[in-house]
Design a protein around this nucleic acid. Structure first.
Length: 471
DNA sequence: TGAAATGTTGGGGCG
DNA sequence: ACGCCCCAACATTTC
């Protein structure tokens, strides 16, 4: 009986899983395996929120497999060694996986592929995470894109009709000895701070599809406006599901088309939403072609930028949501509580850290990495470099968000602020929106005075930027 | 997917 | 009726 190992990584789903599908088609049995190897991700081993998600996503994948009379074989340790051991123990002829795009993962997977082939094992890798591979999208001259809009035009016109693969039937699962229990991976936090996460999320393939269906029914038509209002569920909130591959972009596109086409009345335009998935593809495109971007400025002109000296006290207040600027604090507390933050607020808190506090973007990127359930090296890097002004197709540095104006515009009634800063719940919206005018009223609620004056710190940021040589 | 400063226009009050 | 000022509303420029 021919047997193949399906090495699951961040493709934690059974439907539209090209590696799983191909393995089931070509072999009599498959061994679904996950190897926990946090040391192999360079300096970006998953943060605590990601590990929480991963735990539950693995549990869900195992449960799905068991409904198909298979189970997930779990191991912890060196991927190359454990795969070789598994091949030896099971007599597997082949190993299948879906590709990752982080530089450290590419290096590791390349080495493993070569080593397995030298042992006479066939290896097959697939695209399970993107509409198109990073190297499939190129300018007319064959170069990678550095600007989003032409990238998006190219990508959008070449996706074609999505045809998601079904769950393989039957799924003839093999088992192997020496697997470990999920709990042994140690993914859950020692101190149980995860109640807010559990309340906000349902990791796994079915949770992802249900979220998408609700979004298609309620929100996608109004996305262009509703997505800017942080108190509303106007966004899809699919980011963590996409990161762990519980749903694929092809499934998202196919599902949206099916649900929108089958609906009476005017057909909502999904383009504004799909464009955001385009940003996700752009982020992967950039990380693949410019593998240093997760640590270095994409725009080298910013290598000489006069960041303020790293200040743990300032950064700490920002991290804990104690800056005294209500919209910033609401966002940082939402992040801490749920492992997620509304995108508009992400831009505001990032602008505040990198401009008003003039702390290097890497401090923010690292905190997001540790606290987001959707922490993704490609997306996180693009987002921070975009806000900081040093990235590809970035917002110009002088585009500095005024957190008070943003709150007045997008959180008019302060519902979002009051939700995450309950000590301000009884105040009229005007008070948090003009916090600098009301230090006494805020202090009476036990809320801090703004740690910086927004207008003055903005001027200092612009002055720092002017010290950069033109270019 | 900004904000603030600066410039322009046009309506209305008023002498 | 006219010029003048004020200012809101909008557009453009600058950071």
């Amino acid at each position: 009986m021919s047997l193949a190992i399906v090495w699951f990584r961040r493709d934690l789903r059974l439907a539209d899983n090209p590696a799983l599908h191909a393995a089931c088609a070509a072999h009599a049995q498959v061994l679904p395996a996950y190897i926990h190897a946090p040391d192999e991700e360079g300096s970006w081993s998953p943060g605590a929120a990601s590990r929480w998600w991963l735990h539950h996503s693995l549990a869900d994948l195992d449960a799905s497999l068991r409904r198909h009379h298979a189970e997930l074989h779990l191991r912890c340790g060196d991927s190359a060694r454990l795969l070789a051991e598994l091949v030896h123990a099971t007599g597997a002829e082949a190993v299948y996986w879906n590709r990752l795009y982080e530089p450290a993962a590419i290096d590791r997977d390349t080495r493993i592929k070569q080593a397995l082939r030298e042992q006479g094992v066939s290896v097959h890798s697939f695209n399970g995470a993107l509409w198109r591979e990073p190297w499939q999208v190129a300018t007319r001259t064959g170069d990678p894109y550095r600007v989003f809009t032409p990238f998006w035009r190219n990508l959008r016109d070449t996706i074609g009709e999505p045809r998601p693969l079904p769950v393989p039937q039957p799924l003839r699962g093999a088992t192997a000895a020496d697997g470990v229990a999920l709990e042994a991976l140690g993914l859950l936090p020692g101190i149980r701070w995860d109640a807010g996460l559990a309340q906000a999320w349902r990791p796994g393939e079915r949770g992802a599809m249900e979220l998408l269906e609700v979004f298609a029914d309620d929100a996608v038509g109004d996305y262009a406006q509703a997505r800017d209002v942080p108190s509303r569920h106007g966004t899809s909130r699919l980011s963590p599901h996409l990161h762990f591959g519980e749903i694929s972009p092809h499934q998202v596109l196919a599902t949206l088309r099916r649900l929108l086409d089958g609906r009476p009345g005017p057909r909502p335009d999904p383009e504004p939403f799909l464009r955001e998935l385009g940003w996700r593809e752009f982020a992967h495109h950039l990380l693949y072609h410019f593998p240093e971007t997760h640590t270095s400025n994409f725009n080298p002109k910013f290598d000489g930028f006069p960041w303020a000296k790293a200040d743990d006290a300032l950064i700490g207040r920002w991290q804990r949501g104690r800056t005294g600027i209500p919209l910033v604090d609401a966002g940082m507390r939402e992040l801490w509580h749920t492992g997620w933050m509304h995108n508009r607020v992400r831009m505001v808190v990032a602008s505040f850290l990198t401009k008003n506090l003039r702390q290097h973007w890497r401090h923010g990127a690292r905190w997001f990495w540790d606290t987001l359930v959707d922490a993704d090296l490609a997306n996180n890097t693009l987002g921070w470099q975009w806000v900081a002004g040093c990235g590809a197709d970035a917002a110009p540095y002088f585009r500095i968000f005024n957190p008070y104006l943003q709150a007045a515009r997008f959180d008019r009634d302060a519902a979002y602020i009051k939700r995450w800063i309950p000590e301000l719940a009884a105040l009229p919206a005007k008070v948090p929106h003009e916090a600098w005018k009301h230090p006494a009223a805020l202090a009476a609620c036990g809320y801090p005075t703004p740690m910086v004056e927004v207008a003055a710190s903005r001027d200092m940021a612009l002055a720092a930027w002017r010290r950069l040589p033109a270019g």
